[in-house]
């Protein structure tokens, strides 16, 4: 799969790079979009190579990140449009998808996307059962039952009328 965000033929001014996901799909990305990722920018500064392999980002996640980068690299779009794109970008996404995205933003060092995704994850986490959070994050509960009861007793107001969801 090769996607391109370039409309015309490549010019010297608008250079492109190919980014390959861990499952082998390749994406053609304009350099202006790629350099929004601090990691990719460093690579491009150091190497002439135009093919970058990302060994820990799958094609679905990479496609999303590239769509994000390309939109944000587009000088023709106003900041308002970009902001609404950001909102649209994360809305309706499953928690799982967001997890892969946030890891990818960490790998690629795309700070603004990291914030957007982290925000969305935080919004989803709210009003979820603590058990739900533990399950999603694969966290071992290291509180003793007594300690947990004590925490809930001390901050009873916070637990009382939480409308908890466990889905």
């Amino acid at each position: 799969m090769v996607t391109t965000d370039e409309k015309g033929p490549l010019t010297a001014k608008k250079k492109s790079v190919i980014i390959r996901s861990c499952d082998g799909d390749e994406f053609l990305v304009s350099e202006s979009a790629a350099v929004l990722s601090t990691s990719l920018k460093k690579i491009l500064e150091e190497k002439e190579d135009r093919l970058i392999h990302l060994s820990d980002i799958d094609n679905k996640t990479l496609a999303m990140v590239i769509a994000y980068l390309s939109t944000h690299a587009d000088d023709g779009l106003s900041d308002d449009l970009k902001r609404s794109f950001d909102q649209e970008f994360v809305s309706g996404k499953e928690f799982d998808v967001l997890k892969y995205l946030v890891l990818a933003t960490d790998t690629l060092q795309v700070t603004c996307l990291c914030y957007t995704v982290a925000k969305k994850m935080a919004d989803i986490m709210k009003n979820k059962l603590v058990e739900w959070v533990r399950r999603e994050f694969d966290i071992q509960n290291d509180y003793t039952p007594e300690a947990e009861a004590e925490i809930r007793r001390l901050d009873a107001w916070a637990w009382d009328d939480r409308q908890l969801e466990d889905d």
Partner: peptide, 21 residues
């Protein structure tokens, strides 16, 4: 692509998410 071992979420990312909360 099971690189994503969520239990070992980098602490900076965890911090970021909790910061948003």
């Amino acid at each position: 692509c099971s690189y994503c071992c969520w239990a070992n979420l980098p602490s900076e990312l965890l911090r970021e998410v909790l910061l948003k909360v």
